[in-house]
Design a protein around this nucleic acid. Structure first.
Length: 196
DNA sequence: CCTACGATCCCCT
DNA sequence: GGGGATCGTAGGC
């Protein structure tokens, strides 16, 4: 996928990522849930400017930003324009099911990649992948095949910016980390987007 | 179904 | 010195 499509605000890119396929190594699946963060957003790691932790968030569009969450989990983002990124929160697992089951310690498809921490454990994503380009091995990012129904809602697990509807999900997917609360359709996204 | 809480640690103030 | 862009388990209804 052309890195140029990521050189826009995360809130624009985020809904277009729904339905795309993310692979790391031999495991991965279809993106069904994401959240957008940017510099104007008090919930964002980039809100107060560059630091050591968020350095990759100010890197090139189309690269990875990986950070440690709550001391024990990893979370994976796709960098968009400088200081903005899309947190990938859930996949519908399609590739490398055995490897993901082994890493996650469960056979339930629901519990493999539904949640940012689970997703990183299933795909073996850690700080080692921080800053890596996503159009190059070990990563693969594939455009979606057909139209998808994307819905928006408020983001999860934050206190600041809690009302900003920058969570986007594949409507009715059983692989979301949590159901959408406020469910608003995202207009003009069913057929064409820059990510095709 | 739901809410509550502890684990665990690096980064930032 | 404090606080998370989380997860799993335990318990109540």
């Amino acid at each position: 996928m052309d890195p140029g499509v990521f050189a826009r605000g995360a809130a624009l890119v985020a809904p277009e990522l729904i339905g795309c396929t993310l692979l790391h190594g031999d495991a991965g699946g279809m993106i069904v849930e994401v959240e957008a963060y940017d510099r104007t957003d008090p919930a964002s790691h980039s809100f107060n400017g560059p630091t050591r932790r968020n350095a990759a968030m100010f890197g090139s569009p189309g690269t990875a930003y990986v950070y440690r969450s709550y001391g024990m989990h990893w979370c994976f983002n796709i960098v968009c324009e400088p200081g903005s990124a899309v947190l990938v929160r859930a996949l519908e697992p399609t590739r490398g099911l055995d490897a993901m089951r082994k890493r996650r310690g469960t056979v339930l498809p629901r519990l493999l990649c539904s949640g940012p921490g689970r997703l990183c454990q299933a795909l073996a994503i850690t700080a080692e992948q921080d800053g890596l380009p996503l159009d190059h091995p070990p990563f693969v990012l594939l455009a979606r095949e057909g139209p998808v129904a994307v819905a928006a809602g408020t983001r999860i697990g934050i206190t600041k910016g809690a009302d900003t509807p920058w969570r986007f999900a594949l409507a009715d997917s059983p692989f979301l980390s949590r159901p959408l609360r406020r469910r608003e359709p995202v207009p003009a996204l069913s057929a064409g987007s820059a990510l095709r």
